[in-house]
Simulated scan of single mutants.
Amino acid sequence: MAEDNKTHFGFRSVDSSEKAGLVAGVFHSVASRYDLMNDLMSGGIHRVWKRFTIELSGVRRGHRVLDIAGGTGDLAAKFSRIVGETGEVVLADINSSMLEVGREKLTDKGIVGNMRYVQANAECLPFPDNHFDCLTIAFGLRNVTDKDAALRSMHRVLKPGGRCLVLEFSKPTSDVVSKLYDQYSFSVLPRMGQLVAGDSESYRYLAESIRMHPDQETLKGMMDEAGFVNTSYYNMTGGIVALHRGIKA
């Protein structure tokens, strides 16, 4: 978190107390078109990133899984099938609109028995210590005001030996990819948001928030500081996205 009780909202500096409300406004606005925009923005490749996350999770039948900032439930749906009726998946999101879209989507798919929905702030998760076998947060950490507090909270609710997986946009590994990505993010993406979701500003914020997110090594260090061990990361699509994994000792 920035000094003097300030933090960033995209490229703007705002009071830390204001950020959660500003982010909420973004996701209330885009919730109904979130899945469609994900497919359009990434050309569908977000599904590959999420599949890799599932593969590295180590989740098995009977496990208890927490999907933070789970939004419309892509990861939660897959985890639900893996853990089976003896397991449990908690889809958590701070945003009520996103949580409701996720609940409706998964219910329509017939995923009901082992799913629970909780409106929760990642910085102060309302769950007991040592509770979950696995925890994921996909494309949500960059929107959290106090990322260090969130990582400590995630560490607390994991069981010893449990895995934390952070899937997030990151820093491209080559200058060429970085320049092309910037052009796409700040020229194409807001126009796409306006055409499809009727909201260019929210997608401009999303592009800006990615640039303000810690790079791969910095986030790895933050996870280490929060208490995770054997922390590692995997770059995907030239570093545009990275998957960080940490273990609770």
Rank of each mutant, 00 (worst) to 15 (best):
V30N: 02
L158P: 12
L141N: 02
L56T: 10
E3I: 05
L243P: 04
S202W: 02
D133E: 11
R47Y: 01
G221P: 01
G87E: 09
N230T: 06
S17T: 11
C124Q: 13
E55Y: 04
C164L: 15
D199R: 07
Q119L: 07
R163L: 09
A2R: 13
Q194R: 15
R142L: 05
T72D: 04
M1K: 08
E18G: 03
S232K: 14
G87I: 00
D93V: 00
N114Q: 07
K78R: 15
D93T: 05
T237M: 09
S17K: 15
T107A: 08
G62E: 05
A138G: 15
T86G: 13
R156D: 10
S80P: 05
E225I: 03
S202R: 07
V118W: 06
I45K: 07
S17D: 12
G44A: 06
K220T: 14
Y234F: 14
L243I: 13
N95P: 11
S187T: 12
R204W: 02
V26T: 01
L36M: 03
G70V: 05
V83W: 08
G84H: 10
D175T: 14
H213P: 06
F186Q: 11
G162W: 01
H213Q: 08
K147F: 00
T145M: 15
T145N: 12
I45C: 08
R12K: 14
S80R: 04
K50A: 07
G193E: 04
V229T: 15
D108Y: 05
R156V: 13
K179N: 08
V101M: 05
N130A: 15
V118R: 06
L40G: 00
P214N: 09
L141F: 06
A20D: 12
V118I: 14
G58T: 07
E208D: 08
V188K: 02
R60P: 02
G193N: 10
L243N: 02
K6Y: 10
H244K: 09
H28N: 15
E100C: 03
E18L: 04
A242E: 08
N143C: 10
D67Y: 00
T218A: 14
P190K: 11
V177H: 01
A76I: 01
G71F: 01
V101S: 04
H213W: 09
F9H: 11
M1T: 03
D93N: 02
K78C: 07
S32V: 01
S29Y: 00
L189E: 01
G140N: 01
G239F: 04
L56D: 11
L158F: 01
F132T: 12
